[in-house]
Amino acid sequence: MGGTGSDQTMNLTLNVWRQKNRRAEGEFVTYEAKDINPDMSFLEMLDVVNEHLISRGEEPIAFDHDCREGICGQCGIVINGSPHGPRGATTTCQLHMRSFHNGDVLTLEPWRANAFPVIKDLMVDRGAFDRIVAAGGFITAPTGNAPEANSVPVPKENADLAMDAAACIGCGACVAACPNASAMLFVAAKASHLNLLPQGQPERSRRVLGMVERMDGEGFGGCTNHGECEAACPKEISIKFIARMNRDHHKASLLRIFS
């Protein structure tokens, strides 16, 4: 058995958002989670609950997940008001039940944002993120065009900072946590990653203008600098990148006005 060495199991009460599909009205339903091992991951706990539901002939709770190792960005549940739960720098799939206590009552909700429609229970549609990337979150470098990799040195500091931003897994917790359901942290991370590199310079302005326009068009809110996004981010991406994107956007807009 695992690290805590504890065999003490626990019982929890779950208030789970259930919603049949995009159009349906949803509601909270209460379930008991019994004999939960603290070494289980949160999703394994839900697996156990679902097995019970199936054996009772009730439809299991739908939730998104894939890699279960904190990197694909597909999982995401708001647990007691915190996207990905109480532990910092941790995705829902990497959260373990030892973060909770016997007798806890947990409220499980999907990401809530106009731009992320709920499609079932705890699953949402994050297609808006892909569309934002399609609107400029790339470097145009068609296959075959590339110069020798070491022909353009990149200062280590810049490469490291770009990597800090590039660590984003696109889970959408930033949107879920933001009081305005703003996608600024996601967009800023992508724009900063590319704008920090020499390869990203030619499209710097186009990129940020295109992505922000798409972001607004998708119906995300604006940034009021609360900082909730960075607190929820499982990859601890800093809101400094939002300032960086603001700067890039102001510059690009002014250039556009005066060109």
Binding site: N80, G81, T107, E109, S182, G219, F220, G221, E228
Partner: peptide
């Protein structure tokens, strides 16, 4: 941007 509110909200940094 958020037509449906959360039942429960926990603020961490705001």
């Amino acid at each position: 941007a958020r037509p449906k509110a959360y039942r429960q909200t926990t603020r961490k940094e705001a």
